[in-house]
């Protein structure tokens, strides 16, 4: 107490200069935030303008047709939209249990000696450029997948059965399923790193109380830890999903790049991002370019919807 009293109060609480600087600081922050909003708005406007010829020409059929014919100049987004949703959805399906497992192991179960190497390995996965994933997928994973998984499954199908139709395809490992698996590996570190941070925020007392009441490790994780971080976990998942939706290079390498709807689990397909990456550089026709930009707008809307849904879910959870 005395020490405090002895401290001389050298400066008044606020000088005129300080107030002015404060105002400036506020203005700068406001500017930074609005600049971002303006850039986003500008992006949407330019996508709408750029894609307008395609919307005007094809109308609603642009969204429901899977026809993609640069010679006849007929374009429809449905094939790419379905490919995008299916590949991202499958990727999430594969990545989520793994990511959860990794995060829970690291936080709750891992011997301290292993924590660092495993954590670093997961973080390293996040740092690998997507083109490297694409090349690895095309040259290493797809051939392995074809030989050890796809071919045995295709061979086991009896001719004429539904199973044969479902498993038909080119036996070289390139397709939506392989692309989804590679995508899963790519989004795994994002989900698991966020999950780990979330699990670390749980106060030790909460966990220890549960143990004190005689819960098993599994019960603590299922009934205490996971519910505690549910809100944030949904955000982490959506972050991964958003990344999977927009991933371009890796997918382009291994998805097989066929327009139209996928007809079997090994079918090749295309996503919005892969179609744009494949064709934009060489698109000279006005309608071709416009259709690709329109595809970009569709992807934007899909991503926005996913994020909005996430917000909605988080909001509901927070109130509950």
């Amino acid at each position: 107490m005395t020490a405090l009293a002895d401290t001389p109060t050298t400066a008044p609480a606020r000088t005129a200069r300080g107030v002015a600087l404060d105002k400036l600081f506020e203005a700068l922050c406001f500017g930074a935030a609005t600049l971002l909003l303006a850039a986003l708005g500008g992006l949407v406007v330019s996508l709408v303008i750029g894609g307008w010829p395609a919307f005007a020409k094809f109308g609603l059929t642009f969204f429901v047709s899977a026809e993609w014919d640069p010679v006849q100049e007929i374009y429809g987004a449905a094939g790419a939209v379905v490919g995008t949703l299916v590949s991202a959805g499958l990727a999430l399906l594969f990545a989520l249990p793994l990511a959860l497992g990794v995060a829970i192991f690291l936080v709750e179960l891992c011997p301290p000696m292993l924590r660092r190497p495993i954590g670093t390995a997961v973080e390293l996965l996040a740092g690998i450029p997507s083109i490297v994933y694409g090349m690895w997928g095309l040259f290493a994973f797809a051939p392995w997948f074809a030989k050890h998984i796809q071919l045995p499954i295709m061979m086991s199908a009896k001719p004429g059965t539904i199973w044969e139709t479902i498993t038909s395809g080119v036996p070289n490992g390139a397709g939506i399923l392989t692309a989804s698996i590679v995508l899963a590996i790519m989004i795994l570190p994002f989900i698991s790193a966020t999950m780990r941070e979330l699990l670390l925020t749980i106060p030790a007392q909460v966990r220890e109380s549960a143990y004190g009441l005689g819960s098993t490790t599994f019960e603590v994780i299922r009934k205490v830890s996971l519910p505690y971080v549910r809100t944030g976990a949904i955000g982490a998942v959506m972050l991964g999903l958003g990344r999977a939706l927009g991933e371009t290079m890796a997918v382009t390498f291994i998805i097989g790049n066929a327009h139209g709807f996928p007809t079997s689990i090994f079918a090749s397909g295309s996503t919005i991002a892969s179609t744009i990456a494949n064709e934009f550089a060489e698109a000279t026709g006005k309608l071709h370019t416009a259709s690709l930009i329109a595809l970009g707008l569709v992807l934007f809307v899909i991503t926005f919807t996913v994020l909005a849904l996430a917000r909605l879910l988080i909001g509901r959870q927070a109130h509950a």
Partner: peptide, 27 residues
């Protein structure tokens, strides 16, 4: 028809010469 990209009636699309070569070699 003829164009720098067409509506291929069948098959797989590889990106670039290396993509096509990789698919051919693996299949």
């Amino acid at each position: 028809g003829a164009n720098d990209s067409v509506k291929w009636p069948t098959g797989l699309g590889g990106k670039g010469n290396d993509g096509v070569a990789a698919y051919v070699k693996q299949t």
